[in-house]
Write a protein that binds this DNA or RNA. Structure first.
Lengths: 248, 248
DNA sequence: CCAGATTTGGCAAAAAAATGCAAAAAAACA
DNA sequence: TGTTTTTTTGCATTTTTTTGCCAAATCTGG
């Protein structure tokens, strides 16, 4: 069996069963466990699976686990620091939800004078504490999971806005599938925000790069800029560079 | 079962049931309690759960628990305790802003199923943490002083609502001048809420009784009930009793 | 304060992974 | 085609990780 063929077999097994054991694979393909381990390492390096002691797990199965650890807090602060450099006095800014955006709200320069539109409760709480920014809350039903407003009224309001820049905290970004999410209502809001903004900036920690979720929000071509905690010349970001997206 | 897989299982259990017992998990997964304990420690170290004697708690459950257990002797807490007795399943409730209303939001019975309309950021944050109430946020510009939404859009939305009951935190209540306030925009919102509700309940600490502010919100005849931290037969409340207002 | 339950930390056995190395296979090249 | 180079694979050894057990320490609810 060819190496390539073997790795594709492993990948199928992982995605089918959500987990595989090194020992099972070794027996099934009749190669040594060392070889399987090397294959798993390569697949894990290219982000296709998650390696674990004794075998590997599928990415989709693993996403709930890796999100929102306390260690990502520093990364999100770093992202917020970069993002605020894009802000200018007098701008009209659309702001999505999520912990990264809330960090951005905490990191606003003290003298900024701008108008923020948001449907995120935690972000609004932070924005409103700033002495000189105006906050317009986009009302509607509040989603329990994401703590942002969702629904037709909210989308209608967003459609009336013509913002200079839009900051979106995102859950999954992939070269092939673009921007994806797992909550239908939230996706509708994000799409509306992208439509209503001249410039779209996606904020995300690097571990969400090259991951996919179930519902498409936008293609890569709709994004103007990506901000992560990595240096802009990190090799993980190369594909996005080549796609013509600015990296900060 | 792989270690990683096991930890994901535990994490899902914790988030699902808000708490888990070491012994239950040990039996469910068929590993020793030591192993479970180590898993819980690791998950706790990375901030995903809160470890406790005998098991672990979910993060969200733990924080709301903390928030609920403080200030048990505060006057506003006492008022909130009285106010929640008015709530019934299936009601549509208009909720104003202010710290007293936020206490009310923290004191909701765990099993209540109702729909809250509010323009207050702090109150909404509390309402949304409740497992079974719906929250509709009334959007518009957010007033920095009061942290509630104010403006024409908000009033328009409130006019569309026909609520069963309305809770207003108030700044001044007087036999002669009735309900008064010092913020023009906030007054407009309160007037709209009173118009849109079958029953109007005013929440206030006793020291605000028999005080006046500059702008009139409503006459006494528009109020159905007043809730303070005092006993309902306190002599301070006699005049309001005589005006035909219920006291709790 | 007590008795039982729970946790902690050390220890050791087993399992798995990493490492270095050499043979075999495949690819590249003259 | 024959030779060299690179890649792949398996093996032996060392290192790391995982796990259960145990005893001492700690906590819990009367």
């Amino acid at each position: 069996m060819l190496k390539r063929e073997r790795q594709e077999f492993i990948l199928r097994e992982v995605n089918l069963h959500n987990r595989v054991l090194t020992s099972d694979l070794s027996e099934a393909i009749s190669v040594s466990e060392d070889t399987i381990r090397r294959d798993l390492s390569e697949l894990a390096d290219s982000g296709k699976i998650i390696k674990a002691h004794g075998g590997a797990l599928s990415r989709s199965f693993h996403t709930s686990f890796q999100a929102n650890s306390v260690y990502s807090h520093d990364k999100k602060k770093c992202i917020a620091q970069k993002a605020v450099t894009l802000l200018r006095d007098g701008q009209f800014i659309l702001s999505g939800g999520g912990t990264t955006i809330t960090e951005l709200a905490k990191a606003l320069p003290a003298t900024l004078q701008a108008t923020f539109f948001t449907g995120s409760l935690p972000a609004a709480i932070e924005y409103i504490q700033h002495p000189s920014v105006d906050v317009i809350f986009i009302g509607d039903r509040i989603s329990k999971n994401s703590r942002i407003t969702v629904g037709g009224d909210a989308i209608e309001k967003i459609n009336q806005i013509n913002a200079d820049i839009c900051f979106l905290g995102i859950n999954a970004l992939d070269m092939e599938k673009g921007l994806t999410d797992n909550d239908w209502d939230v996706v509708q809001i994000k799409k509306a925000m992208i439509r209503s903004s001249k410039k779209v900036v996606a904020l995300t920690i690097a571990e969400k790069l090259n991951t996919q979720q179930k519902i498409k929000v936008a293609g890569l071509e709709e994004l103007d800029m990506i901000i992560t905690e990595l240096d802009s010349d990190d090799k993980l970001l190369d594909p996005f560079h080549r796609a013509g997206i600015q990296i900060l």
